[in-house]
């Protein structure tokens, strides 16, 4: 029997109550409203690999990330990391141990560092919280080591976050994530707030650190170029559902789900190959009132009656009736 994957996410759900205040509901006689941000997402991550979640804004990527690390309670489903359940209330004690192995790098490096704290205190916080090393001198040494590791100078620890550029701050955030010797790091769009020139540096740093420490990444992004650079496997999310999961190379060469196809075709093509594309049609629908059946059907070129009525379940990593039924894309050839 193969070993259990390091991270296992099963049928994860999150429903937000977006109702108006009680008084308004009573007066206006409007019902409660719920938003299904994440609806039955399942995937697993093997140790040492990078699993990327991609999708448009509002597809639920960040919500999944927050639920995986336990920042957000789940409405249903299960998350298991290193055989410890993040969702089972009975495993609270084991979860405390898991915390130090699990860190997160956030999207906005301007908001992820406390502006009133010096950088050395920020990086030392997890070290102190988990007693990774004992003694003030050792903590200082460890912080210096971490700063060097992410390409900063140990003296930078005396500075405040506002004295750094966005890329440098993201390096500080990475140092903080590594401070407790974490081996699973959730990266929530770690480069989307950075200049393109800096993005590559940060991504390469993250890859180097992955090789060095055998880190496992859950990588959230909407940038396909970034994902291509980083990911081992990719999950494509649409309106809270995972529509396709496949190996990174496979997904870029043979996208199966029509939505994946659409995303890839939206990437600008410098070669002007003139290859047939699915044009991006429509917008992501309102998740409070999602379309019936397959939620992608209003935008799908392959839609039929079944798609409108029946929600497709993932088969071989693709949740699409058309793929299962073998309906192929009939592309309009550009004139």
């Amino acid at each position: 029997m193969s070993p259990r994957p390091y991270v296992e996410v099963t049928d994860l759900r999150k429903v937000f109550d977006v109702s108006k205040p009680w008084l308004n509901r009573v007066i206006e006689r409007s019902p409660k409203q719920f938003l299904k941000a994440v609806d039955g997402v399942s995937f697993d991550i093997k140790k040492g690999e990078t699993f990327a979640l991609v999708g448009e804004s509002g597809s639920g990527k960040s919500t999944v990330a927050k639920m995986v690390v336990g920042l957000l309670g789940v409405s249903g489903g299960e998350v298991t990391i290193d055989n410890i359940s993040m969702t089972d209330p009975a495993q609270r004690a084991q979860r405390a141990k898991l915390r130090r192995k699990m860190q997160m790098i956030f999207q906005d490096p301007y908001a992820s560092l406390n502006p009133r704290w010096r950088v050395d205190r920020i990086i030392a916080e997890p070290i102190r919280a988990f007693n990774v090393v004992e003694g003030e001198a050792n903590i200082v040494a460890r912080v210096g080591e971490l700063l060097t590791l992410v390409g900063l100078h140990p003296d930078d620890g005396r500075k405040f976050p506002h004295e750094f550029s966005g890329g440098q701050r993201q390096r500080v955030a990475i140092a903080r994530a590594l401070a407790s010797n974490a081996d699973f790091i959730v990266c929530d769009e770690p480069t989307s707030a950075l200049d393109v020139s800096v993005q590559a540096q940060i991504l390469n740093l993250m890859r180097d650190l992955q090789e060095k420490f055998g880190l496992t990444y859950l990588f959230i992004s909407h940038n396909l170029a970034v994902v291509r650079h980083m990911a081992t496997r990719i999950g494509v999310m649409y309106l809270g559902r995972l529509v396709e999961v496949s190996e990174a190379k496979e997904m870029f060469s043979h996208p199966r789900h029509p939505y994946t196809r659409m995303l890839l075709d939206a990437v600008p093509d410098l070669a002007m190959s003139g290859r047939a594309r699915i044009p991006v049609a429509g917008e992501i629908p309102n998740p409070i009132n999602p379309p019936s059946g397959c939620t992608f059907h209003p935008r799908c070129p392959l839609v039929n009656e079944r798609c409108r009525a029946e929600n497709p379940l993932p088969i071989n990593g693709v949740a699409c009736h058309a793929v299962v039924e073998g309906r192929t894309l009939l592309m309009p050839v550009p004139a």
Binding site: R99, A111, N114, E125, A129
Partner: peptide
């Protein structure tokens, strides 16, 4: 702001997060 999330992530309880992170800001 996510620095509060970062503090919660390392298992800090509400009280220290409020006093150490939110209060000074």
């Amino acid at each position: 702001k996510v620095y509060v999330d970062a503090a919660r992530l390392i298992g800090l309880k509400a009280m220290p997060v409020m006093l150490r992170h939110v209060l000074p800001n």
